[in-house]
Nucleic acid binder design. Structure first.
Lengths: 348, 348
DNA sequence: CCAGGTCGTGAAACCGATAACATTCCCTAA
DNA sequence: TTAGGGAATGTTATCGGTTTCACGACCTGG
């Protein structure tokens, strides 16, 4: 690597002070044309660019937001990251990603790291779903002393931060109502892990909806099914093989589209015709939903919009000192073939 | 935000010099136990963490690698990012992502930004596929003056950097050979855009393989099909409707699994049974391949391994001054239902 | 008894920028 | 003629650390 050229080198060679070099860079009008040209030439000749580290140190900010989530390779978080990235970019900021893996609690190590990096703000997505509420609030409060904090989370209980909530009410209500309209009465929920606040809230919301519509809330219709395809396959097999065929549900709602993918594979393996023998509704409206066979009806929580809102609020919070804030982006249902909507009403 | 506490605050309060505080932090043995304890107490009491910006400035390095790619939400790049992230993490480094979108050339702006950030190394994946070779080498050479450069790219022509090559030879050979073994003779390729070096090389490689095996290399069997599902749908429709049914291929190889998804949807819409009426082989071995109907045979280029190798070599290159390096990770074929392997040999 | 070494610690330079403040120069109006 | 003002530029403190080097205290061996 070649010796790095600094602002001092430029200043010396141009016969001016470093202040003037900075002015040229900043397009400060208080520089004579002659000086500007001369300095610019030296800058160009040396391919000089001011060091970001030095600027950060001097400026006391990094123009970088942290995004903490379990894994980016998960499609849902993927979309959050992408949206946050561009929203930050639009505002001259960058996003630094922290992956916590299966560890869904917010560890002291990661808090330390965030502080060390002097981020301009931090957005938590998913990585706090299973954290103990008290631990979580302690961690958020500590972080809050150093930077604005935002979360994309399922909680309706307000945390001490910018809180962008998933619309879990409609996430349960929309598919059930739609299936009900289509004539379904026995509806099952295959979802997540009961260790996660998100999932358990979804499970609770699901049961509430069933009762609200006077539908059977058989506990056998509510199975712990993880988050991925393999889990979906196993869960649906477990559920159905434990039930007399007469008690089988006529429709299944899943925690997400990956689980739905597994469920569909397993059902086909069992010789069922979809959606005639079983209706399916997933969640997240992933890119592949239009390309499954049958195409998959799915709830869209609009993670991109939540991420963009969170980033905007974080950037705003750098200036103002408003600490707390909450909003919900309403979920929507995207109807495709897997729920049997095309088949019209029917009695089961 | 609370006033930031610096090393000076700690030093003053502990009645020592900043040098000693640093020593305590670094677990330098040349500190008396009494001093160590006293300083550590003050550090803990104030929740002090040294500023990364200051450390970076002083140290002259950032312990951060740049990863430049078109979009992370693309599943292929997604996996590259994830693998690079953990490999860097394992070595005490972080990865900063730069997305170039559709702009596959390497712009001077991004080069400037990389230099400004004083990255410890940069890995290009995909974002350079369509760049003009000369422009590319100029940019890489300029960057090379500041940091080690690596690429994950389809080129067999050695670039002036660490060059991790995709195994495009086998990427063409494996599916064709497999299909040939199964009895297929008329094999089509739906792939990418001819503006990309990667795609055009794959197209060329495909034709070469066909000729090598004495199979018809009808130009009608080679269609520009973009990179996503919609493109796949349209491309296969365009290809088949332009051909008399007697000249239809019996198998289709696609640029990637997304295109394959679109192709399968379109073929089903046309009433074909898969894989009986048409065999399909995709590329990338994405997570959903086992869950399509029929499940999708696919080539795996092992992007994760390539990313990990690239990161390792970049980190190594920080120390040594070895500039150029090349390696290939051999591609493999993952056989599932869509190619009809289960159906045994047949004559078409 | 003293040269020489080790240990713990502090002073100060340095990393590469920015920005507040100071200075110089020149022009204009009283 | 000169005070005053503005434009162009320089001086210097500062951001928050790390590191080199020097120094004093204490110990040890000749």
């Amino acid at each position: 690597m070649s010796k790095k050229v600094t602002i001092y080198d430029i200043a010396r060679e141009a016969g001016v002070s470093t202040a003037t070099v900075t002015r040229v860079f900043r397009h400060d009008p208080h520089v004579s044309e002659a000086t500007r040209v001369k300095v610019q030439q030296i800058i160009d000749a040396h391919d000089y660019t001011p060091s970001l580290s030095a600027q950060n140190l001097e400026g006391g900010r990094t123009r970088t937001l942290a995004l903490v989530l379990p894994v980016v390779s998960n499609l849902y978080f993927n979309r959050i990251f992408d949206a946050a990235y561009w929203e930050a970019e639009k505002n001259g900021c960058s996003v630094r990603l922290f992956q916590t893996m299966e560890n869904q609690a917010i560890s002291p190590e990661i808090v330390n790291e965030l502080i060390r990096c002097r981020m301009d703000g931090v957005l938590f997505a998913g990585s706090i779903w299973s954290a103990d509420r008290d631990d979580l609030n302690v961690a958020l409060e500590r972080l809050g002393k150093y930077m604005p904090v935002a979360t994309i989370c399922p909680d309706d209980v307000s945390l001490e931060c910018i809180c962008i909530q998933s619309d879990l009410v409609n996430c349960s209500r929309l598919p059930i109502r739609h299936l009900h309209t289509l004539g379904h009465r026995r509806i099952a929920f295959l979802g997540g892990s009961m260790h996660s606040r998100d999932t358990s809230r979804r499970g609770v919301g699901f049961l509430e909806q069933l009762r609200l519509m006077d539908l059977p809330d058989d506990p056998a219709y509510h199975v712990d099914a993880g988050y991925d395809m393999e889990s979906g396959e196993r869960a649906v097999l477990r559920m159905l093989s434990g039930l007399d065929r007469s008690r089988w549900p006529s429709a299944i709602v899943t925690f997400n589209d990956l689980v739905a993918l597994g469920v569909m594979k397993q059902l086909k393996k069992m010789g069922l015709k979809l959606p005639d023998d079983m209706a399916i509704i997933g969640c997240d409206n992933q890119f592949f939903c239009a390309y499954t066979d049958p195409s998959l009806t799915s709830v869209d929580l609009h993670p991109e919009e939540m991420a963009r809102s969170a980033v905007r609020e974080l950037l705003l919070a750098r200036e103002s000192s408003s600490r707390s804030f909450a909003m919900v982006r309403e979920a929507t249902l995207v109807v495709r073939e897997s729920c049997g909507a095309q088949l019209g009403f029917r009695k089961l």
